[in-house]
Nucleic acid binder design. Structure first.
Lengths: 138, 138
DNA sequence: CGGGATCCTGGCGGATACTG
DNA sequence: CAGTATCCGCCAGGATCCCG
């Protein structure tokens, strides 16, 4: 496993790493680190969606935050924004070619999450109940 | 691509999603969302490392934050902490079997980051220079 | 050596109201 | 419909000092 070791070391030992965005890992992490970005990309991965369609799929997000995350993704060239100057306005969001390269990552994350849940379901439920005491407390 | 679409919808439309940790995507995102967790797992993916060895590989992290991220990863069963009660103390960190399942995700992220840099190198450099004005300003 | 304890701050993200 | 505008709480994360 020496090649693997070397690769990992190289990535982070380069002086540019952690400082600018030219370390592949740091950059990838940055591009995906917004709280809603992963979900947005996940939704757009197989469909063009309008603003409200995305909003409907995210039960607990505010309009402001959704807009912010969409703008950030657009600035990073991961999604495209199509504005139709009609009345009422219509705006569609579409994943870019580069954005599509993230989908395999999301698939793996989904798969990993599912495995993790299988193994630790009981503990996850226990944690959940611990931080969400029953109604009795009221 | 209907199966794909269904799968994605199901993940987030389930009432549990975004609310508890039982949505695979939300959970996976949570487990990896710490600022340094990805790098730590990356380093440990092929090696057992001591505390200071990890620290040396992260130029800009404080001891407190490294400790915090390590504890969080340990609580989530992604790494193990081995304490040798010697003088001076020696602590080693090792990735767990479940943690190892994250490595393919990191490999993909690294690959994606590299592709992204190839395509947008100029823009990334421009952004970097914009937020880091030359010494002249002093 | 490998932390813990404290204090502090930026900005992420939420709530609510308004608008072209 | 698809956003702004405004206000604000919170906490991840940083700086600094101390310790067994």
């Amino acid at each position: 496993m020496e090649t693997n070791e070397k690769k990992h070391e190289n990535c982070f030992m380069r002086e540019t790493c952690l400082k600018d965005d030219l370390c592949p890992m740091v950059l990838a992490h940055k591009l995906l680190s917004g709280k809603r970005k992963i979900m947005i990309l996940w939704f757009l991965s197989n469909k063009v969606l309008r603003y409200n369609e995305i909003l409907k799929r995210m039960p607990d997000v505010t309009q402001k935050m959704l807009t912010k995350q969409l703008r950030s993704l657009e600035d990073d060239h991961l999604i495209m924004r199509h504005v139709y100057p009609t009345v009422p306005p219509k705006v569609e969001y579409e994943i870019t070619d580069i954005g599509k390269r993230i989908i395999p990552i999301l698939e793996l994350m989904h798969h990993f999450g599912a495995s993790y849940i299988e193994i630790f379901r009981d503990e996850l439920n226990a944690r959940k109940n611990a931080q969400e005491p029953p109604e009795i407390c009221n």
